Amino acid sequence: MRKKWIAKKAAFIATAAAFMVALFSAPASAAAYDVYYYETHAQADNSPGNGAASWVWVYNGGGFGVVAGSVDYQLRDGSSGSLVVYGSAASRSLNSDVRQIRACQEWVNYNTGLFYWTCSGWSAVS
């Protein structure tokens, strides 16, 4: 009787584990490309699954001296753009695949009162 119970329990655990893997695994074609720059996190996806050709997202958590964050993007059709957030997150669907992105951050120098932007390097999105 005890062996049957253990076998049933093991089968249940194996089935539940397989279900969780299937539920939370992303398909091989789904790939978001990430770029981090201090408190800014940027992403791009050329297969977003929402009907658009691509998608960009940016998050900026703020922090001492940090005013804003942005994702700059260059598209395969030759156009480019930027999505800016102030201590929050935002996304944008696009009509062309993203070629490359970079994360940027706006800072304030409290000694001079001047604002300036700095950015990561460009990251290719395939």
Rank of each mutant, 00 (worst) to 15 (best):
S82M: 13
A68V: 10
A90K: 05
A90E: 07
N95M: 09
V98E: 00
S93V: 05
Q74C: 14
S80V: 12
Q100E: 07
V67N: 11
C104Y: 01
S91G: 10
A68F: 08
C104W: 00
F64D: 15
A89P: 06
V98W: 03
Q74S: 15
S70M: 13
G87C: 10
V67R: 10
A89G: 11
S82Q: 14
L83C: 04
Y73D: 00
S79R: 13
N95W: 09
V71D: 01
R99F: 10
Q100K: 11
G63T: 03
V98I: 02
A89C: 11
D77P: 07
V85L: 02
Y73W: 08
V85R: 02
G87M: 11
G81I: 07
S70I: 13
A68S: 12
L83A: 03
G65D: 06
A89Q: 13
Q100H: 05
Y86L: 09
S96Q: 03
R92H: 11
A103M: 02
S91T: 10
V85F: 03
C104V: 05
S93H: 05
F64C: 15
S82K: 14
S80E: 13
R76N: 15
R99L: 12
R76I: 14
S88W: 09
I101K: 02
N95C: 10
S80A: 14
G63S: 04
V98A: 01
S96W: 04
D72A: 11
F64N: 15
G65V: 06
L83E: 01
G69F: 04
S93C: 07
S93D: 10
F64L: 15
S82R: 14
D97K: 12
G78W: 02
R76F: 13
V85W: 02
Y86Q: 07
G78F: 04
C104Q: 04
G81K: 09
Q74I: 15
A90C: 06
S80C: 13
A90T: 06
R99P: 10
Q74V: 15
V71H: 00
A68C: 09
S80K: 15
L75K: 06
S96R: 06
R102E: 00
N95T: 13
L75Q: 05
Y73Q: 05
R92I: 11
V66G: 06
V85G: 03
V84G: 05
D72R: 12
L94H: 06
A103E: 00
G65C: 06
S91P: 01
G65T: 04
S91N: 08
D77L: 08
S96P: 02
S91R: 04
G87D: 09
A103V: 00
A68R: 11
V85Y: 03
S82D: 12
Q74L: 15
S80D: 14
V85C: 02
S82C: 13
L94D: 03
I101V: 00
Q74G: 14
V85Q: 02
S93Q: 07
D72I: 13
A103L: 01
R92F: 10
G81V: 06
Q100R: 11
S80Q: 14
I101W: 00
G87P: 04
D77N: 12
Y73L: 05
V85I: 05
I101Y: 00
V98L: 04
G65P: 03
D72G: 10
D97N: 12
V67C: 11
L75D: 02
Q74M: 15
A89Y: 12
Y86D: 09
N95S: 14
D77H: 08
V66H: 08
V67Y: 07
Q74R: 15
S96C: 04
S82T: 13
